[in-house]
Write a protein that binds this DNA or RNA. Structure first.
Length: 355
DNA sequence: CAACCGTGGCT
DNA sequence: TAGCCAAGGTT
């Protein structure tokens, strides 16, 4: 297929079918960047309200840079992949301190920023000023693999080279912004992962997958995620109407988010076993009152199935129990403002805020 | 560089 | 139900 023909036909389709999305009505690299980070591995319907919240709370990169990380994470709460929010804040501060508050818009400059990889750099550079770089995301892999019959494994290491070469060859000289958005939009609403409606597709006459009936086989993707089972036992320590929480850190899930005292076991256990395995729990149960035991929550992540149970513990007045490192007492109002995982937030909503 | 990082919707 | 996956990036 002639490359000009492909781009022209795609843009024509886009002009007829594109959705009206707020980040498409701007050339401001700051707004485009916000939308791109929010939309990484995230559906438009899920990211849309977060985009609105972020541009309202942080109209400029200076506003975002001046915020506390905790505030940024709190706004990000519920969207997942929280390193995106931490990197977002780091990058905003870097733009203010090292770029004079002017958000970079060239591919090579953008690549230097935290949380911006090859896709996001290409998206911001092309959307903001038509820089001639091809975007390569899940949509582009799918569209190119089907239309041109490319059977390279998109999870393999050759994928970026093979599809990147094709994507770059197809790039038009003009309207790069429109073209890049068009190929992604086409993948999102016409050339969909599930059974696409190929009888109504503008590329049905030229599409390799349509001709060979290989739509469901493409793109080829080899990797299967293996799911790890985890068992969380949370202890909510209450003293004088305040509750002990701590910030999670390290490389585990929910880094930067707040939760309670946690003991993790290889299966769900009762209190006597927990006390035997955990000296703090043992000491705690001797000097306090168990005031509540939650149902078991099953929390599903891409790589993990977490079963969690929450025990509510009243610390007796005059108890000599000292909180383990990092735990501090917070009022319910303060807890509302802390960034929390959806698991913890679901528990709090059920047992504190909506009861 | 393979593994890891969330959540919610769909089949 | 179990699996897939959605505008990826980092380590």
């Amino acid at each position: 297929m002639n490359t000009d023909f492909f781009a022209h036909k795609l843009i024509s389709w886009y002009n007829r079918h594109k959705r009206d999305l707020p980040w498409r009505n701007t050339r401001n690299p700051y707004f485009i960047w916000l939308s791109e980070i929010i939309l990484q591995q995230t559906r438009v319907v899920q990211g849309l309200p977060y985009y609105q919240k972020f541009i309202e709370n942080f109209p400029t990169v200076q506003d975002l840079a001046a915020a506390d990380e905790k505030e940024v994470l709190r706004l990000w709460q519920g969207l997942g992949y929280y390193s995106r929010a931490r990197n977002l804040h780091t990058t905003a501060k870097m733009v203010v301190s090292e770029f004079g508050g002017v958000f970079p818009d060239t591919y090579n400059e953008l690549l230097k920023l935290k949380g911006i990889g090859s896709y996001t750099a290409a998206a911001i550079a092309s959307f903001s000023h038509d820089e001639k770089v091809a975007v390569l995301d899940g949509n582009v892999y799918r569209v190119l693999s089907r239309v041109f019959g490319v059977e390279t494994d998109i999870a393999g290491k050759d994928a970026k080279k093979v599809f990147g070469k094709l994507a770059t060859e197809l790039l038009p000289d003009q309207q790069v912004s429109t073209y890049n958005q068009a190929i992604m939009e086409f993948g999102a609403i016409q050339c969909t992962p599930g059974l696409p409606q190929c009888m109504f597709c503008t590329f049905s006459p030229e599409c390799s997958a349509n001709e060979l009936g290989k739509q469901s086989m493409l793109p080829v993707k080899s990797k299967k995620v293996k799911v790890k089972e985890r068992f969380f036992h949370y202890f909510i320590l209450e003293k004088e109407g305040r509750f002990a929480m701590k910030e999670r850190n390290g490389k585990d899930v929910w880094s930067g988010m707040y939760d309670f005292y946690l003991t993790e076991q290889e299966s769900m256990q009762d209190l006597s076993v927990l006390a035997g395995n955990d000296t703090f729990i043992d000491a705690l149960l001797r000097e306090s009152t168990i005031s509540g035991e939650s149902e078991k929550y099953l929390h599903i992540l891409t790589h993990q199935r977490i079963t969690a149970q929450f025990w509510h513990i009243q610390i007796n007045p005059g108890s000599k129990i000292e909180l383990p490192e990092n735990l501090k007492y917070y009022s319910l109002n303060e807890i509302d403002d802390l960034p929390k995982s959806t698991l913890v937030n679901n528990y709090l909503k059920q047992y504190f805020f909506e009861k």
